[in-house]
Nucleic acid binder design. Sequence first.
DNA 1: TTGTGATAGTTGCAAACGTAACTATCAAGC
DNA 2: GCTTGATAGTTACGTTTGCAACTATCACAA
Lengths: 170, 170
Amino acid sequence: MKLESFLPYRLNRAAAIASRQFSAIYRNDFNLTVPEWRTLATLGQFGAATATEIGEHSAMHKTKVSRAVAALQRRRWLVRHTNEQDRRIEHLSLSAAGRSAYAKLAPKMLAFEDAMIRKLDPEDQEALAKGLVALERALGIDRKTSLLSQRSENETPGEDDLRDRRRRVA
Amino acid sequence: MKLESFLPYRLNRAAAIASRQFSAIYRNDFNLTVPEWRTLATLGQFGAATATEIGEHSAMHKTKVSRAVAALQRRRWLVRHTNEQDRRIEHLSLSAAGRSAYAKLAPKMLAFEDAMIRKLDPEDQEALAKGLVALERALGIDRKTSLLSQRSENETPGEDDLRDRRRRVA
DNA sequence: TTGTGATAGTTGCAAACGTAACTATCAAGC
DNA sequence: GCTTGATAGTTACGTTTGCAACTATCACAA
């Protein structure tokens, strides 16, 4: 058994190291936890989502999402709108303050990501992108995200300034 | 900001989902936690290591390793040998019972990994392997693991039965 | 209309976690 | 032979986590 080649081991290690580096940014700037940042980023991108959707999209436990949402709401970065057709559902979206924080944070995160990706040869970037997409498909990730991905078609315009990135992995 | 393409987000999601599936195996069979399994696997492969080495190799916090080692020792799966040249250092290795558990578990884990990898096209397997190696290099992982990787050259033979896998990612 | 099962989200509680502080040990310089 | 600083590993403590149980709501059927 070679740990050096054992896929889940390597994935977790790489994810942990990368996450530690990235989280330093939003922890320093805004004292955000990882689940809070993920929730902020999801809402920043998709405009609105339910807690369940956020959890499925980011593979976070529903209690984790629930607490992150509560924390963001306490900061007044997030608002809830109960669906009147089905009162169990709460549509979440960012307040002006939340969007402002997201607008400050997102470019920093993307710049840091670019710096990380640029450490790879272009052909390695391609390979990572291709391999990761295939792995996500094998893990059944594309299906879980379909709901939100579709909705992202008709997001509210006006905050698109962050979305025109030049060169992305996948 | 496209979460769909944001590297640390995707890495963490894939790692979390994969880890959840894999951990079900050793949790069911032996009631092992993730850190305990990682420690067991590291010692099972390398024969012996210090707690610091295990932590660096698997990107686990030293307190996490310390607790996992203590738990494995409580099961009598692990023994400590204080280095007499430097009495701060403890060389850890598996007991017969520990090796036995590892021998039962490792083939299951590898079989499950094979099933997961086989969901990918061969060219996607290659791409993932290539991309992951490059990413690890960019994250500085290869350096951290060098100590243990070198030692793995002269491991004790006799437990090599698990190491002759045919087709591996990386 | 009442009951049954399902779903969205929250919370109590015990387990797991990371930070910081600790012990024990070592090497190096004075 | 003492200090000083560094390292290996453990532990106390407050925080975060996940499981299970909970509330509230809905759809559907007897």
